[in-house]
Nucleic acid binder design. Sequence first.
RNA 1: GGGGGGAUACCAGAGCGGUCAAAUGGGGCAGACUGUAAAUCUGUUGGCGAAGCCUUCGGAGGUUCGAAUCCUCCUCCCCCCA
Length: 424
Amino acid sequence: MNFIEELKWRGMLHDVMPGTEEQLQKEMTTAYVGIDPTADSLHIGHLVSVMILKHLQYCGHKPLALMGGATGMVGDPSFKAEERKLLSKKDINHNVACIRKQLEKFLDFESGENSAEILNNYDWIKDYLFLDFIRDIGKHITINYMMAKDSVKKRLDTGLSFTEFSYQLLQGFDFLHLYETKNCKLQMGGSDQWGNITTGTELIRRKTGGEAFALTCPLITKADGTKFGKTESGNIWLDPDKTTPYAFYQFWLNCSDVDAKRYIRIFTLLPKQEIEELEKQHDLEPHLRILQKTLAKDITIRVHSESDYEAALQASEILFGKGTTDMLKSLDEKTFLSVFEGVPQYRIAIGELNQGIPILSLLTEKSAVFPSKNEARRSLKESAIMINKVKVTEESIVSAEQLLSNKYILLQKGKKNYYLVIAE
RNA sequence: GGGGGGAUACCAGAGCGGUCAAAUGGGGCAGACUGUAAAUCUGUUGGCGAAGCCUUCGGAGGUUCGAAUCCUCCUCCCCCCA
């Protein structure tokens, strides 16, 4: 399988340095992407890089994931409006350890010659002397060259510190180091990384006379122009503690048609023919959302698990299908809890419930569904509030009779917001 | 150093003595439609309440029956000239 061709039809190829394809055809090639450990979990934005590595490995080459334990301490200025705040060593180490675990799920570390590897640039940068750096590395690259980069130019008006300015050189040094120690000849990344990557290939050429290559993929966008990978509630993380498998599944399911066609190519490993077939079906019956469902299923299973997917699917059917009180009642406690895992929970005393709690009080004082009674009143008037899937009015009193499994009350605000009240 | 303009609710931005809890737009939330989409339309968007009351217009004072609006001082932002 041809790696470049594979990326091309998947819409994952933005720019590639001349000679890269020849290099890949010539021999098994080691290539890497860098991942900045800015948080203790990957989010779906990172998934693109991971998928590139995965395809690379599929095509018989050797993928390296480089954790930016050192570069993460500096901060990449590329196309960012403002200087980033620096992370502490301790945070970064923690983040690196967490992300490492996640990466291990995606790549094959036991495939012999082309086994994946995870490296941390802190390991070779931490003891490298500044003096050596400016003599051995800095000597080969001119300021003029560095300043000509778009990523730097854009920041000259607003200012960027020497720290951030140095970033590309540090990243270039990584590439050089991997070239020399791992025979790594290709660096890949998002299109915003082109400048940083080419500093690396340039450094390799000038310092060793060797040849290295660059390949970038387009930044993932959304058809409506908003930022990919974010919802109102923030990033979509791979860590199930940060983003529940249910929310994760829902994110993909809710993609627009245009986006789904692109995402299914990027984020699944389905072959071209199968994807085209799915698209055909989708266009015939768009309301069935075959693309979104396939996409969401595939990614959820790979990132989480088959059973997480089943649970998310079941939850979705109950929450968005024609869920009724009877359906809720029919669930056993374990299933019920798994459906509403990750939904905000509030605990109240069973005694209070026996006396009956006015709905207004339940929504504000007993829980944090609304910050004020006025807001709660408003929503009640708009009949946006449901208890156990039944609409309620401002006068409603909630009592123990409404408990599901003798323990739970399901509050709902609008179509999508659920809250669980637990009586104990 | 000199001169000028400004700070209003989540954001932008009107208001320039009472009728201002504060126009309008964006955003948010909800409803209708739909495919849990997009677009569109509708309602709503300080707090407590039945009426009504309470706290808000950078901060602190003052004038007035009454201040987002006038005066004084303070803090911060922007522009022009040197």
